Amino acid sequence: MITVRHSNDRGHANFGWLDTKHSFSFGDYYDPEHMGFSVLRVINDDVIEPGKGFDTHGHRDMEILTYVLEGAIEHKDSEGNTRILSEGEFQLMSAGRGIYHSEYNPSNDKALRLLQIWIEPNQLGGQPGYQQKDFGKSVGLTPIATPTGEHSTLTLKQNASLYQLVLPANSSLKLELGMNRNMYIHQVSGDLMLVNQVELHSGDGAKIDAHSHVELVNQSAESVVALVFDLP
């Protein structure tokens, strides 16, 4: 089954300094039909005004991925990490038994746009961790986060993997789903066609289960970018 979550149907909040869209229930946005998918709990599409950001706050027992789409973000946490993430970079913060952090847009004139992704871990407690990497924009499927950290990926505390898909114009790619596995696709930019003429546009998401494979087709004249989650 393929279930599409259209961008315009996402939860939305605007706090002035933050304009955010929620693929799943988060904060004051609650929808019992959209509480997550498998261990994927949050995908927030955040636009943060120059010089603004999230003050220091805490997390525990959550794998928190950040993907910078535009601009840059300044990260500081209670483990002593002070970093700048630039456009295209991924960050994975394992909250473990507890961590405090802040996130700010350090620019004076440019908005910051990012995806914040939460994945429930299969290991509770433990030492918090921080990882950061730019994986570039290679054509095809690039592994970003895996349970083992293989191929120099970020190491995720869950039996799940995250991939970046870059599909050139007028091309297709067939993805295999393992036995009893689920897939979630978040469309970052451009348009994708899935099996049975299912279309994904920027900001859309697709829950995929009970399929042995799915074919992704880019019929446009531009490359498209998506995030692909392999989930238990």
Rank of each mutant, 00 (worst) to 15 (best):
V166L: 11
I99Y: 06
S107E: 11
T153M: 02
L69F: 04
I64Y: 00
S161N: 02
E70H: 11
N81F: 13
L141N: 06
L69T: 05
S161T: 10
L112F: 09
D134F: 09
G125Y: 03
K157H: 12
L115P: 02
W118I: 09
N170I: 09
L114E: 08
P121H: 05
V68Y: 07
H57A: 07
K52Q: 15
K52S: 15
L85V: 06
Q132S: 10
I64P: 04
L156D: 09
L156K: 09
R97V: 05
E70F: 03
P143L: 11
K52T: 11
V68I: 15
F90T: 04
V166I: 15
E79A: 14
I99V: 15
D77K: 10
G126M: 05
Y104H: 13
L115F: 10
S78K: 11
H57I: 02
N108R: 13
L162A: 10
E87L: 09
G140A: 03
S161H: 00
Q116K: 08
K133H: 10
K76G: 07
T153F: 01
D61H: 03
S86Q: 15
A160I: 06
D55G: 11
I99C: 06
N159W: 13
N159P: 07
E150T: 12
S102A: 14
Q131F: 12
H57Q: 07
Y100V: 08
R60G: 03
N108S: 14
I119R: 08
K133G: 06
P147H: 03
Y100H: 13
H59Y: 14
A160V: 00
E87H: 08
F135S: 01
D134W: 03
L92I: 04
T146W: 04
L124V: 05
R60S: 13
P168F: 02
Q123M: 09
K133A: 09
M93A: 09
Q164P: 08
L154A: 15
Q164R: 14
F135C: 04
P143D: 12
Y67H: 03
G129V: 08
L85Y: 11
N108F: 12
A72P: 00
T142N: 07
P168A: 12
E74T: 11
Y67I: 00
H101G: 02
A72M: 15
E89W: 01
L141S: 07
T155G: 04
V166H: 09
E103R: 04
R60H: 08
L69N: 05
E70V: 10
L165W: 01
E63T: 04
G136N: 13
G129W: 00
R113Q: 14
E120L: 12
L65G: 01
G149L: 04
T66L: 08
